[in-house]
Amino acid sequence: MSSQPTGGSRVSLKDVKKAFGNNVVLQGIDLEIPAGQFVSIVGKSGCGKSTLLRLMIGLDSVTSGVLDAPALKAQAARIVFQEPRLLPWASVKDNVAVGLGEGQSGQAADKQAADILEEVGLKGREGLWPSQLSGGMRQRVALARALVSQPTLLALDEPLGALDALTRIDMQALLEGVWQDLGFTALMVTHDVGEAVALGDRVILIDHGHVVLDLAVDLPRPRKRGTPEFAALEGQILDKLFGDDPRAREAH
């Protein structure tokens, strides 16, 4: 691949609390995330996992406690949302250029955009409108836009949640490959436990504003979903999520 590794940066949270008015969303969060780690964050709807993500990349500020993330000071943190949020009136190339920020143009910028488009497998589609792309390809453009400025910290807020099952599998492989090539720290919120285990070096489970499980995933990549080790880890997370209610597990 033509993009150079950018490296990652660490994130550390000490006794972090986040409240909106009287509503405490997160409390007593202690996390050390080393540079370059892929962290999956799972939890039920409304558990505070998206708020945690927004805190860690500076979209919200902590109510109390200490958040230390060098990427924020260096403005090297980026986010990919569930919806691609592309400008429909801008070509693929121009959408990616949005990620370069103000006043970045010329040959160097063009080269950066071209490199990252190749990295996400969109070479040759620079001139297309977003409406001419499939859902998976649009999300690739959003990923390229986030990565073109070479961030050291990338947040992914259910990035594959809006895609069909087959495209998801495709995109998981792409995401893993790009992360391995570039080496940024990845923080991914997902509601899919299988996806969390397949991609994360570590899976963090949030429940009612607390970290209730912090699990290292020590399986060789690329991971095979059918293996007993994989299933055991998935089971461990689901147990913690739903307790012993077999019907809830079945539904998941």
Binding site: L59, R85, V98, R145
Partner: peptide, 15 residues
């Protein structure tokens, strides 16, 4: 959502 995206990517009011 596009306006929020623009703000996150550091666009000033004019851009």
């Amino acid at each position: 959502q596009l306006i929020e995206m623009g703000r996150i990517y550091g666009m000033n009011n004019r851009t």
